[in-house]
Write a protein that binds this DNA or RNA. Structure first.
Length: 239
DNA sequence: ATCCGAATAT
DNA sequence: AATATTCGGA
């Protein structure tokens, strides 16, 4: 309880928000998932399903991308060629998905944290200070809601009470998100799973937006897992 | 016609 | 800062 004061002056580590990423994969599902993940990291994402298109884009805008993530075998071009050319011509960091690569690294350090992703707290290069103030001094787990003590309202002024995301409600939310999985998580589905009467889809959408923006590590971890589970490998890293 | 996601407003 | 609302686009 020593360090509970605001770290106001130190700007939280902004990490490359808006980094321009080109994602290439001929499998539409893969591409979409990748795009979604990257978007949620607040990257600036461009996608294409064709290697030739990717190459053309990269050649036409030599400084328009910061990173390339690509599958390797695509019908129109050998993905390696793309990677080679990109690496040689523009010296961009490239993450590829090599299935024919020999230097493949199979690490199964898979800990079963499958349903335990509600603690956004770590990450290899995360410097974000997530301090959770213990606000549960006198408030225990009481799922009772609606402590509206307002009986003093005139009928002419209808007030729509703002939704308050209590710890309990947020737990439901997080649970729903974890059930859905990162690629399925959309407001409507969350709403259904939560089964909270007074909530609207907009409420959930709004919260989802805030929640995701404040917890980039969650998405990063998902992206990290995705990349690793798919045996992506960093081929060239130089920036 | 629905609903998502980013931006913007309160 | 937290939540709502708007809005363009899929």
């Amino acid at each position: 309880m020593t360090v509970e004061q605001g770290i106001g002056d130190s700007s939280i580590e902004k990490f490359p928000i808006g980094m321009r990423v080109l994602a290439v994969d001929d499998d539409p599902t893969c591409l979409l998932l990748l795009e979604t993940l990257l978007r949620r990291c607040q990257y600036n994402v461009t996608t294409t399903s064709q290697a030739t298109t990717a190459l053309r884009m990269l050649r036409e805008n030599k400084n328009k991308f910061d990173l390339v993530i690509s599958d390797v075998h695509m019908p129109d071009m050998d993905g390696f060629k793309l990677l080679e050319l990109v690496g040689l011509e523009m010296d961009l960091p490239v993450i590829s998905k090599p299935k024919t690569l020999h230097m493949e690294k199979e690490d199964n350090k898979d800990r079963n944290s499958l349903d335990n992703r509600d603690k956004p707290d770590e990450g290899p290069d995360q410097k974000l200070n997530k301090k959770r103030k213990d606000q549960n001094g006198d408030e225990d787990e009481d799922p009772d809601e609606d402590e509206d003590e307002h009986e003093n309202e005139d009928p002419t002024t209808q007030k729509k009470p703002r939704v308050v995301w209590s710890v309990e409600l947020h737990r439901k939310f997080v649970a729903a998100v974890n059930i859905l999985g990162i690629d399925k998580v959309v407001p409507k589905k969350i709403l259904d799973l939560m089964n909270a009467e007074k909530l609207t889809r907009e409420n959930v959408a709004s919260h989802l937006q805030a929640y995701i923006l404040t917890s980039p590590s969650i998405i990063e971890n998902e992206l990290f897992f995705f990349i690793h589970e798919s045996n992506y490998t960093v081929v060239i890293a130089e920036i």
